[in-house]
Amino acid sequence: MSNPLNDLINDIIARIEAGVPPWRQAWKASADPKAPLRATGEPFSGSNAWLLAFAGALRGYRSPYWFTFRQALSINAPVAKGEKGSPAILYKTRVVGDPADGADVGPADDTGDPRILRYLKTYSVFNAEQLTDCPQQYLNVVEPDPAARAAARNAVLDAIPARVEFGRGTPCYVPALDLIRLPLPEAFDTPDDFLATKAHEQLHWSGAAHRLDRTFGKRFGDEAYAFEELVAEIGAAALGLRIGLAPQLLDSHAAYLGHWAKILRHRPSALLEASGHAQRAVDYLLAFSAQAAVAALAA
């Protein structure tokens, strides 16, 4: 059966094979990344977060707001003639034999439980800047104060209780010791390079057996570690969107580009699977700073 994301997956594979993953390429010459927002102001999550942020950055949109065709009409700001939408992903479930479909629900296996069919479809969304006479509330985006944004980045990453050992030459997470090893901050070209590397290793840290227990060996065999790197890459990009931290391409991870392209060609759905794991990791890591903020208010 044809995957509705075939065109998108093929484009992503081509970009990876060209040497720069799309979740990094968009911000090479772009401003502070922003998490894409629905028409209601609610942030997109999962794959849609980095897919739409990527699309917006490549096209130079400053507004983080995205609308469906009908949502644009509902605010009297129809999509401008000739504008092309960006793909977003909708996950749906259906009980096989659902009475709503005019059929009896029946057990699908020996457990006696009805079978749940999960599938996805794509739909088009348009940035606020693609609309005609869009209300200014969706266009007048206030840029955050750089000092405040930098403090927020540090607060989020510092709240993650990972054990970090500084002074090592190669950044890495060591599962056997459950610690992150990082060069000293001054060894990096910029503060953002240091923070992006730290975030990447914290994504790995989240996958430990006593945390989110990410294990891919049985499914991906020799590609297991490359897949974990893909999860950490997408996760660090998604986390960066939440805190305004542009992804950085780490030289030590360039070797995985061929593995990622191979995995996606063999199993296109792996991209969405990796995005799902990445989103769970981001939610897990952000919970620490949320807890710290609640504790500070209660003090």
Rank of each mutant, 00 (worst) to 15 (best):
A209V: 11
A226C: 02
A238D: 13
V231K: 01
R214S: 06
L230R: 02
E165T: 04
A237T: 13
K198V: 01
A162T: 04
G169N: 13
T190W: 09
P191A: 00
A226N: 04
P185W: 03
R219G: 15
L239F: 04
E223T: 08
I234K: 04
K218H: 15
I234Q: 00
G235I: 07
E233C: 06
I234W: 05
E229H: 00
G221R: 09
A238C: 11
V164M: 13
E165V: 11
F188H: 09
E165H: 13
L203I: 15
G235K: 05
R181H: 12
A226V: 01
L212I: 08
P161T: 04
G221D: 15
P171W: 03
R181C: 14
A236R: 00
L212V: 07
R242D: 10
P191E: 08
E186V: 11
G235W: 02
T190D: 13
G221Q: 11
E186G: 13
L239A: 09
A238L: 03
V164E: 07
A196W: 05
E228F: 02
A238I: 13
P171K: 03
T170C: 09
R168S: 15
G167V: 00
L241Q: 12
Y173M: 02
Q202V: 01
L239W: 00
G235V: 04
A162F: 07
R219A: 15
T170H: 14
T215D: 14
E223N: 12
E201K: 05
P161A: 07
Y173H: 05
A232N: 09
A199Y: 02
G169M: 13
L239P: 04
A236H: 01
R211W: 03
P183I: 04
V164D: 05
F216Q: 10
F216Y: 14
T197E: 07
L177P: 04
D213R: 12
P185S: 08
H204K: 03
W205S: 06
K218I: 11
L195W: 00
D222P: 10
V174F: 10
V164Q: 10
D222K: 14
C172E: 12
T170M: 12
E186C: 10
A226P: 02
E228I: 04
R242I: 01
P183H: 09
L239Y: 03
G235P: 03
